[in-house]
């Protein structure tokens, strides 16, 4: 069943890669790029997650069923977030944000 094997050098390499990515993420956040920053930061987080999943969590050497669970998890989170966020971002008829001054709440 085992096709790839996680070895000590691979673990150390992943650890160093994770630290490098962390400082990369930190560095880009200091550049002041605005909205793009969030995208970059999240992409780096996804990359780090993949390293943790495949090397630290040994997903490379496990059966497809386990990978399927990971795929489904990511898929459903993406689905939940995207379809939920699409709502406030596309609202026209209702004010996109309630104004407390205009509608004082007791």
């Amino acid at each position: 069943m085992i096709s790839a094997h996680v070895t000590t050098p691979k673990l150390i390499g992943s650890w160093i890669a994770l630290l490098v990515l962390t400082f990369l993420s930190f560095g880009t956040s200091r550049l002041g790029l605005g909205e793009v920053e969030l995208l970059i930061a999240l992409s780096i987080s996804v990359a780090k997650t993949l390293i943790v999943l495949f090397i630290f969590m040994h997903l490379v050497e496990q059966r497809f069923a386990n990978r399927l669970i990971v795929i489904l998890t990511f898929l459903f989170i993406a689905l939940l977030v995207s379809l939920t966020v699409a709502d406030p971002l596309t609202r026209k008829t209702f004010p996109p944000r309630p104004d407390p001054a205009a509608h004082p709440y007791p």
């Binding site: 990971v70 998890t73 939940l80 977030v81 939920t84 709502d87």
Partner: peptide, 22 residues
């Protein structure tokens, strides 16, 4: 773990929703 992640997933959705609004 997948199930547990969805527990946080709900909160990530809340985060994204409010960050989109404000």
């Amino acid at each position: 773990l997948g199930s547990e992640t969805l527990l946080f997933g709900a909160l990530f959705a809340v985060y994204a929703y409010y960050r989109g609004m404000y």
